[in-house]
Design a protein around this nucleic acid. Structure first.
Lengths: 188, 188
DNA sequence: TTTATTATTTGACCTAAGTCAAATGTACTT
DNA sequence: AAGTACATTTGACTTAGGTCAAATAATAAA
């Protein structure tokens, strides 16, 4: 696992009872069926979804083409930062790829909790930092690696991503066409 | 200006005297000459640099080639998130492109201040969110726009970037070769 | 003002990846 | 089991942008 994620995990593990209670109080379990939308373009993202099991993806549509920007697995937190942080309409969709169970947390309630509990505020910062670092890494990969290298990296680092997910989605996540991905796979 | 930046600016403007004092106490003015390094690869980023005037850039070297990832102007905050947040050696360099004056803030001192002052903690989160949103936007542009479109967008949105900065750096910031940028400019 | 040095342009050629179209595979219905 | 829908592969062709090399500008330095 990533170093910073470990740090976050340790941090969460250290939470006192009061903090855990408070978090539970503003979260609720929700169940979605395959292909359901957690968020649609134009809606404001008012919740974050902590995935308990299943897979989801975040994508937007550009020139009629879907561009997948993130994949979510168990323990990931799915939301659209741009819409969530500013509470403005989302450009992105979030959709399940399988049946999915989440713990959803309301934006308002979470923000309120942050004010009274600095541990929660710190958690929020850590998660945001982690996401930014992840984005930097993704940009880095697009600048320095070929499509084949990016695919191979995905294979070694996130083999679970390849399972169960249609190639169309993997291709758009890698920023390449479906046909190119198919050819890359044929070679290897 | 960007919507979220405005929000941050308003927030800062609303700071009480105590908070401003506290921030000033842990910041100091530093002056750099053109081409000086604020941070080198391998060093741990222990300060953030609030640019007062001048221009700097952040870049890394991949395959012997410099890739510029960010440009900093007056009022921007220059640092390497990856190194700063984790306090690990930096992959990136930060270098001035002109003579530069900054207010530098120490990582440790800032972190300490955050613990005692929740306004500062909130500011930190807002800045990090803004940076992540900016990164998302940058990824979006690489996925959906051609080199020419990215250049034109830069021209209209950040005309000041074009001034004073060598084309090599603009090209690498746009993720294209120097020659391609020259040809794009020749057309327009 | 001449000489270095660095920045920019232009030309010729190459390549990774995209597009369009058709073929094959796989899974899901009824 | 045959039919429909969707996923993947393969082929033929195009293209944006890269690379390498040489020619001009533009700046700085002696």
């Amino acid at each position: 696992m990533n170093l910073y994620l470990e740090k976050i995990d340790k941090f969460i593990t250290s939470f006192d009872y009061k903090t855990i209670e408070a978090l539970n109080n503003i979260s609720k379990t929700e169940v979605f069926k395959k292909n359901d939308f957690l968020l649609r373009q134009g809606q404001t993202c008012k919740k974050s979804y902590h995935i308990e099991n299943g897979i989801a993806r975040k994508f937007y549509i550009s020139n009629g083409k879907e561009i997948t920007t993130e994949l979510f697995f168990a323990n990931d937190i799915a939301f659209s930062l741009n819409s969530y942080a500013q509470q403005i309409p989302s450009i992105e969709f979030i959709q399940t790829l399988t049946d999915v169970t989440v713990k959803s947390t309301d934006y308002q309630a979470f923000n309120l909790l942050k004010k009274s509990n600095s541990i929660i505020a710190e958690l929020d910062l850590m998660l945001t930092e982690y996401y930014a670092i992840w984005l930097e890494e993704r940009l880095f990969q697009f600048h320095t690696m070929t499509a084949t290298q990016r695919y191979e990296k995905l294979l070694t680092n996130d083999a679970h991503i390849i399972q169960n997910i249609p190639l169309t989605i993997i291709a758009s996540y890698l920023g390449i066409s479906l046909e190119t991905l198919s050819r890359i796979r044929a070679k290897a």
